[in-house]
Design a protein around this nucleic acid. Structure first.
Lengths: 207, 207
DNA sequence: TTGTCATATGACATACTTGTCATATGCAAA
DNA sequence: TTTGCATATGACAAGTATGTCATATGACAA
């Protein structure tokens, strides 16, 4: 919640400040990030900064909500272009592609998201606990597939989501280092196959 | 590689300094950690610190090797008490229990390990790349089980290890917050079951 | 032109950090 | 006792950071 004065600024300047924040918060952890760097990058004075924002937490939250808006819009676009598959794994794959797309297009935003997951400063921990996590939709999908007899009924949907989220994060992190889009997608598919079918050899029934 | 002067110190003082480092590096990231805190905690003067160590990296490396020694000893002990199971999943479970034991007994050490995985300061990244990771043993186990027909032959052992390592880290992280030993072990088992058998319902063969 | 008011500015106080260095201390040998 | 050497110390310089505040600026109204 920036102060009124910030919103009175013309759009270009707001944007400049936003982008300076993105740059700094994607480069360093919340604690390490420096307001000095942000104002230098944005080309505003120290005094002005405190006229716009309460403190570092304030501009961080502002930046997050801005990114959130853009992300929602982007996801909506993907969803319209490629309608969701009809089972859990199809939907999962679609989401994975969307996530990779996002990471590729907005590396800094993704970096910030990454940091948020890893960062363990008090503020970020508090913040993370509030995050809603749009997982409910997937839980519903799993439950439906369980009723349809596609997924074992004795696994807990929450656990599956948990496992998959963790692995997805890992893939994104790897993608950062390798920057190999196709390879990463390939690997994600293999991982999902493991989750789907397991690694144990079939018990000499089909063989 | 601390300086000679450090090793000339009597054991108690060395230990005090080591523990001060553990405390600080488990509390804050490498970049955020402060030498001031360490010397205050250890009860030595600023000047002395620089007589013992080159800089922050130096004491960090020293601390890591010390922890490494202790860990190796602890693992050896576990291995002797509980001999490894004869297939991959048995060995995996044993390792999980060992890891949880370790985390419970040495929360700070584990915290440091955790930080090392997450930390993205230049120094830590460089350091992490050097780490050998004692995964080879597990890869061998998987390959053996593949030959024995227990594990599908078309999965890449490296990928499986990767997936499991990531999930294990996640479990440890969760364990930190919940501090529920039994519950965590239970969850780990369920996760391994997913890896083993998958979540897809059997194709109307057994039902 | 003058008055008013929102906004912009950077100097400042304060509080941290790291690494150095002149000096002090204490021990051991001569 | 005196000499000499290893070690201990904290003041210091130089850098970083944050948040405040008196003052300057510029735009618009009277």
């Amino acid at each position: 919640m920036p102060k009124e004065t910030f919103y009175n600024l013309d759009g270009a300047k707001q944007r400049r400040i936003f982008q300076a924040a993105v740059q700094e918060f994607s480069r360093r952890s919340f604690n390490e990030a420096s307001i000095n760097q942000i104002i230098k990058q944005a080309g505003i004075s120290r005094g002005s900064f405190y006229q716009y924002f309460q403190d570092k937490e304030d501009i961080y939250l502002y930046m997050l909500t801005e990114i959130g808006k853009e992300k929602t819009a982007a996801i909506e676009q993907v969803r319209q272009q490629r309608p969701a598959g009809d089972d859990f794994f199809a939907a999962l794959l679609q989401m994975t592609e969307a996530a990779l797309d996002w990471a590729r297009a907005m590396p800094q935003y993704n970096q910030i998201g990454m940091r948020m997951i890893l960062d363990d400063s008090e503020f970020i921990i508090k913040l993370r606990q509030l995050s809603p996590a749009a997982v409910n939709q997937f839980i519903t999908l799993i439950e439906r597939d369980q009723k349809r007899g596609l997924i074992k009924s004795d696994v807990k949907p929450e656990l599956v989501i948990d496992v998959i989220m963790v692995l997805m994060q890992h893939c994104l992190k790897e993608y950062y280092q390798s920057a190999d889009y196709a390879g990463m997608l390939q690997q994600a598919k293999k991982i999902f196959a493991i989750i789907k079918h397991g690694i144990a050899a079939p018990k000499s029934t089909g063989e």
